[in-house]
């Protein structure tokens, strides 16, 4: 599977709430971030959780978020960030960007 996104791409985490086991924390869903690393391909945890083999493997990314974008009233500094590992099927191009 070829990675759809590259380092530097602006992405948005899908604001989805499917039932079952997912590894995308709620606090970043619907938020915009930037790909800072293409980590590689890994078995899909949403399939592994139910005893299946998790194939095909899915690209996994480091996505960096500005804390001030994640939390209204963030009490730290403007440059503070959170980096979260996110599987590709949870990402879409940020609005206004072409894939």
């Amino acid at each position: 599977m070829t990675a759809r996104f590259a380092k530097g791409d602006r992405v948005r985490v899908r604001d989805a709430h499917p039932p079952g086991h997912v590894r995308t924390p709620s606090f970043i869903r619907g938020h915009n971030g930037v790909i800072t690393r293409v980590i590689g391909e890994f078995a899909n945890p949403e399939e592994l959780a139910y005893g299946r083999d998790g194939r095909p493997e899915i690209p996994l990314y480091w996505v960096e978020f500005r804390q001030t974008e994640l939390w209204s009233g963030y009490a730290g500094q403007a440059q503070d960030t959170a980096v979260v590992d996110i599987f590709e099927h949870w990402l879409e191009p940020a609005e206004g960007d072409t894939p």
Partner: peptide, 8 residues
């Protein structure tokens, strides 16, 4: 401050 959330 950069927080790494090891989700995967």
């Amino acid at each position: 401050v950069r927080v790494h959330d090891s989700t995967a």
